[in-house]
C-alpha cells in the first residue's frame, strides 16, 4: 500500500479539455492511473482520451464516484475549481496550477483547514504525486521513477526528477513521491507528509528536498527529531542564493534573516538528518545508509 493514493483510486481531472489537462490525462492514463472523469464547464458530454467530461464536479462525483481530483485550471479560475472540489467531498485534491494569488490561496487553505479538516490539498504550484508502478497523479515523468521503499517529499519538480534519477541509477526505488509545491502557502506541508510516511510500512527511508524560504523544513526537522526513527536524507536548494531575491518559485526567497538554507541545514543536522551539499549527493548518502544497514532495499 502506498500513501494517499493507489491504482484503485478514482481520479477526476478538473480542466481536462485544456492543453495541459488533456496532455497529462493521456500520460497518466498510460501510466495506469484510474481516471474516471473530467470537468470543464460547458463541455459536459464530450470525451477526452476516452474519459467522460462533466460540467460540474458535483455531477462528476455523482456519476463516477471520484475520490481525488487534479486541478489543471488557469490561475484566474483555479480557486473556484478548488472550492468546488472541496465542497463536492473529494478527499484528495492536487492543485498543479502555478500563479494563484497568494492571499486568496492563504484564505482558501485556512477555510479548508477549519471547515473541511479531512480534505487533503496538495499544492498549488506542484507536480503532484506518484506511486511508482501504481499511479501517477500529476505531471511527474513516470519513467524517471521506479518502485521501491524510499519516500520523497519535495518543494520542486525537476530537482525531484534529478534526485530520483540518481537514486534509480544507484538501484534505489521510491515508495511514494510527493511534490508539495513552490508557493508560500500550500495545503500540505513537509511535516504533514513526514507524519504520513513515518506510519507507512512500505517506506523505509525518507528523502526531503527543500529550498530556501519559509520555515517548513525547520518544522519538519523538529518533528523528525522527536518522532522519526527511519533514516532521513535532506537536500536544501539555494544554499548560495542572495537574500531578498525570489529564486523562481514564489516561495523561494530569503526574507531578512528568515528562510536561509543555513538555518534549515542546521535544524536537519540537529534532528540527525544527513544533509547533501549538492543534489547528486543525496543518492550517495542513501547508498551509504544501505551499506551501514540503516535500511535495506
Amino acid at each position: 500500500m502506498s500513501i494517499l493514493a493507489d491504482r484503485e483510486t478514482k481520479v477526476l481531472i478538473q480542466g481536462i479539455t485544456g492543453r495541459e489537462g488533456s496532455h497529462h490525462t493521456e500520460l497518466m492514463l498510460k501510466y495506469g492511473t484510474k481516471i474516471v472523469g473530467g470537468t470543464s464547464p460547458g463541455k459536459g458530454g464530450q470525451k477526452v482520451h476516452g474519459v467522460p467530461v462533466f460540467n460540474t464536479v458535483w455531477e462528476a462525483v455523482e456519476e463516477t464516484g471520484a475520490e481525488a481530483s487534479i486541478i489543471f485550471v488557469p490561475p484566474k479560475f483555479a480557486l473556484d475549481a478548488l472550492y468546488e472540489a472541496v465542497e463536492a467531498g473529494l478527499r484528495l485534491i492536487i492543485c498543479i496550477t502555478e500563479g494563484i494569488p497568494v492571499l486568496e490561496m492563504m484564505h482558501a487553505i485556512r477555510k479548508i483547514k477549519v471547515l473541511y479538516p479531512d480534505t487533503v490539498l496538495i499544492g498549488p504550484n506542484c507536480p503532484g504525486l506518484i506511486n511508482p508502478g501504481e499511479c501517477n497523479l500529476g505531471i511527474m515523468p513516470g519513467s524517471v521513477f521506479k518502485p521501491g521503499n524510499v519516500g520523497i517529499i519535495s518543494r520542486s519538480g525537476t530537482l525531484t526528477y534529478q534526485i530520483a534519477y540518481n537514486m534509480v541509477e544507484a538501484g534505489i526505488g521510491q515508495s511514494t513521491v510527493v511534490g508539495v509545491g513552490g508557493d508560500p502557502f500550500i495545503g500540505t506541508r513537509f511535516v504533514d507528509l513526514v507524519k504520513i510516511f513515518n506510519e507507512d510500512p512500505k517506506t523505509k527511508a525518507l528523502c526531503i528536498i527543500g529550498e530556501i524560504g519559509g520555515t517548513d523544513e525547520e518544522e519538519a526537522a523538529q518533528y523528525i527529531k522527536e518522532n522519526v526513527d527511519k533514516p532521513v536524507v535532506a537536500y536544501i536548494a539555494g544554499q548560495t542564493a542572495p537574500p531578498g531575491k525570489r529564486m523562481g518559485h514564489a516561495g523561494a526567497i530569503i526574507s531578512g534573516s528568515s528562510g536561509t538554507a543555513q538555518s534549515k541545514i542546521k535544524a536537519f543536522k540537529e534532528a540527525g538528518v544527513e544533509v547533501a551539499k549538492a543534489p547528486y549527493e543525496a543518492a550517495y548518502i542513501l547508498k551509504k545508509m544501505i551499506r551501514k544497514n540503516l535500511f535495506s532495499i
Binding site: 519538480g157 525537476t158 530537482l159 525531484t160 529550498e211 530556501i212 536548494a237 529564486m247 523562481g248
Partner: peptide, 28 residues
C-alpha cells in the same frame, strides 16, 4: 529548467569551487 534544479546547479558550482553569474529558469 525548474527553479529547484537551477538553485541546485548554483549550489553544485559553489561546492565544486566555482560561482554562478546568475539564476535562470526557462520553466517547464
Amino acid at each position: 529548467n525548474g527553479a529547484g534544479l537551477v538553485m541546485g546547479t548554483l549550489d553544485s558550482l559553489s561546492l565544486e569551487g566555482g560561482s554562478a553569474a546568475n539564476f535562470l529558469d526557462v520553466g517547464g
